[in-house]
Write a protein that binds this DNA or RNA. Structure first.
Lengths: 226, 226
DNA sequence: CGCCTATTTGAAAACCGTCAAAGTATGTGG
DNA sequence: CCACATACTTTGACGGTTTTCAAATAGGCG
């Protein structure tokens, strides 16, 4: 891949879009390209955090496994987004694994290089703070949901969150939705079947379409007002 | 309160400890002091994020309420720690409420002042990034626990987390532990009773003492090896 | 067409929540 | 110093939501 292409990818990313050409090509010179097929792992929980990544193309999910082996999807990311950054900042092993959902190309930047870059680009640090803040807010909202809401509401909220990022067509299987909402595939199927009967969603194999967002939003808010 | 006292408090905080005297007194000049009694709220979820806070003395908890009114403790903080920062960085309403656990004094710094300060102190920004990264890692671990682990293991992990921060004597009621672990008070009591029978903890009203940390750690890892 | 994966359905059971009641520290006021 | 109020802890029974296990159906790709 040409350096100019790497620059272009970085320019299109959420974090680096504000950099000028010189800064971009400086970073691009440090970046390495890696490609993954669907289901391949970019890194595993516990690995040393040598790289932080920006997605050039494709989608990845960040997962953790419970002691019984059940998978939980902490987050998923698309092109332009970064991942693996928390471990890089702290210098501790990755707290979760990253796995490609579809064929994916990423740019990786070495921990050391990235930290040096950050130290010399204060506005970049502020941007990172904002992104981390947003992710923290998000995680805390999900914590509350998992602790206190019923499966029906958790699923509705996951669907709304996905819709706000990707539009009304949601390209995930029931199993993936289940792993995001912290429930079993069977439960997700039973709940989505209900939603289909009520005309709130429609679905085809491997994806789900939100038909009536207003009703879904009402469901997410609380139990059907008695 | 004298400016010098405010400086002293900031100097003892986790985030500002690396600042020099001039920087400290500059910040101290911007800080206001506020006091709260146990159970008073410092701010409510949804409030405008005018201030970010550093604890001078006391303990606070950050809570969210589920749609059914159940309380969930997202985090708690002691002297020297900061809270309310996520909202301040993003300029969006506080995502959770903050409530004093005991009599508490805090220093508040206005959003605008703090952002200005950050922009001119890059090493401070890096520190914030580290703290946010740590909190994010923590939140993600808890997400996985809530989604995939049994009540027994969740409780054990909460106790271990508290022990690592406060020592083996844990000054929380069963109800507070329940609100941290995402379960009911009754379930917490039943589980702690089992732990007491097995000699892993002892307890008096309002606090709990870890007697056998090794066994607790084994429990936290997974179901008792059959 | 056949295989693999995704979706669906059913029945039984487990875990934990809910509700109710009672016991036990702690502190306060008389 | 005792009595009472309050909050924390404990216990039991029951029920509901969700998981678990099992089996069948259906869609897409080579």
């Amino acid at each position: 891949m040409l350096p100019a292409e790497k620059s272009e990818i970085l320019k299109n990313s959420l974090i680096f879009s504000s950099l000028n050409e010189d800064e971009l090509s400086g970073l691009a010179g440090l970046a390495i390209e890696r490609s993954f097929q669907a289901d391949e792992f970019i890194f595993w929980e516990g690995d040393e955090p040598d790289y932080f990544y920006v997605i050039a193309e494709g989608r990845i999910k960040v997962v953790k496994h419970s002691s019984s082996g059940k998978e939980f999807i902490i987050a998923f990311f698309e092109s332009g987004e970064m991942f693996g950054e928390v471990a890089v900042f702290e210098g501790k092993p990755y707290p979760a694994s990253a796995q490609a959902i579809s064929a994916t190309n990423v740019l990786g930047i070495r921990r050391r290089h990235f930290l040096d870059f950050l130290a010399t680009h204060p506005q970049m640090a502020m941007r990172i703070i904002n992104i981390l803040g947003g992710r923290l807010r998000d995680a805390q909202g999900r914590l509350k949901d998992l602790a206190g809401e019923r499966a029906q509401q958790r699923l509705a909220r996951i669907l709304l969150m996905l819709a706000s990022r990707m539009g009304h067509t949601i390209p995930f299987t029931r199993q993936e939705l289940a792993d995001m909402a912290g429930m079993t595939t069977e439960t997700t199927i039973r709940l989505t079947s209900q939603l289909k009967e009520r005309g709130i969603i429609s679905s085809v194999r491997g994806q789900l379409i939100i038909v009536d967002e207003a009703k879904l939003r009402a469901l997410a808010e609380g139990p059907p007002t008695v």
